[in-house]
């Protein structure tokens, strides 16, 4: 079932409500238990925690608007396996995976998986609401040029992509998930728990043949199998790609390395 079949009209603008204890941010290992029964009082103004890590369960209500101005809410995703991908029209790494990711999208959407394609590149003009479709492989049609986000529309048309593209105009969801790249994949199980983050597969150039690891497909196959899903352990791979074009970069301490 596609996300666009579950449209919510709750808000005309992007809104993000983090409920107290809605996001468990206890680190990656061990995963925080689902917080479904948490009786703690809700504090709507609370600022922390605001990061979802592997094993955390998202109970926040998040609404993003798509390029057609239609709102999509996490309230519509209850019980569904959800794949979130941070996506770009301009990134050659994303383009390298595009056809395979689109094939996964088509195949697994038919099996009930919801795919959420988010463009959070606020810093490079990709989310320009009007004007020339810079970087798109096709010029926008006259109709596309008159609609918002002509670059995204032209790109989707040229590549026959099935995505409903949501606009993360303030990078709030990207920040919530600590998304870094395009692509950057996040898979949530039916309880809203983040169970996989990282690569689509490890064979961008399709040279590994049978040795390739098809992470996203494998995760979805397991989650769609009721028995296997019970034994599934969340895991992550290192995302690779173009940086999400946030307004300003962020520095962090190194994890390891040296010379």
């Amino acid at each position: 079932m596609r996300l666009d079949m579950n449209r919510s009209f709750l808000s005309s603008t992007l809104t993000l409500f983090l409920l107290a204890a809605s996001v468990a941010a206890q680190g990656v290992e061990p995963p925080a238990p689902p917080n479904v029964q948490d009786p703690q009082p809700q504090q709507e103004e609370r600022q922390e925690p605001q990061v979802v890590r592997l094993g955390d369960t998202v109970r926040a209500t998040i609404t993003l608007t798509d390029i057609d101005g239609i709102d999509h809410s996490t309230e519509d995703l209850a019980g569904k396996i959800v794949v979130v991908n941070f996506w770009s029209t301009r990134c050659p790494i994303m383009r390298g995976w595009e056809s395979r990711y689109a094939a996964i999208h088509r195949e697994y959407a038919e099996r009930g998986v919801v795919f959420v394609t988010i463009n959070a590149n606020v810093g490079n003009g990709e989310l320009q609401r009007e004007g020339a479709a810079r970087g798109a492989p096709a010029e926008p049609t006259e109709a596309e040029a008159k609609q918002p986000y002509p670059e995204i529309r032209a790109y989707l048309r040229a590549n026959e992509l099935p995505y409903t593209v949501l606009v993360d105009a303030e990078c709030k969801v990207a920040d919530l998930l600590q998304a870094k790249t395009t692509p950057d994949i996040f898979v949530f199980d039916g309880t809203g728990k983040l169970v996989y983050r990282g690569l689509i597969d490890d064979d961008l150039r399709q040279q590994k043949g049978e040795k390739a690891k098809h992470y996203l497909r494998d995760v979805l196959d397991v989650l769609l199998d009721e028995q296997k899903a019970k034994e599934f352990e969340p895991f992550e791979t290192r995302p690779e790609g173009c940086s999400i074009k946030r307004p300003a970069g962020e520095a962090r301490r190194p994890r390891r390395g040296g010379r």
Partner: peptide, 22 residues
């Protein structure tokens, strides 16, 4: 994470002391 651009600051001792992604 290979997120371009990335800049590493490495001290004279060889330790990576800061990573700037983006």
């Amino acid at each position: 994470d290979p997120v371009l651009p990335v800049t590493l600051a490495i001290g004279a001792s060889g330790e990576i002391v800061e990573i700037h992604e983006g």
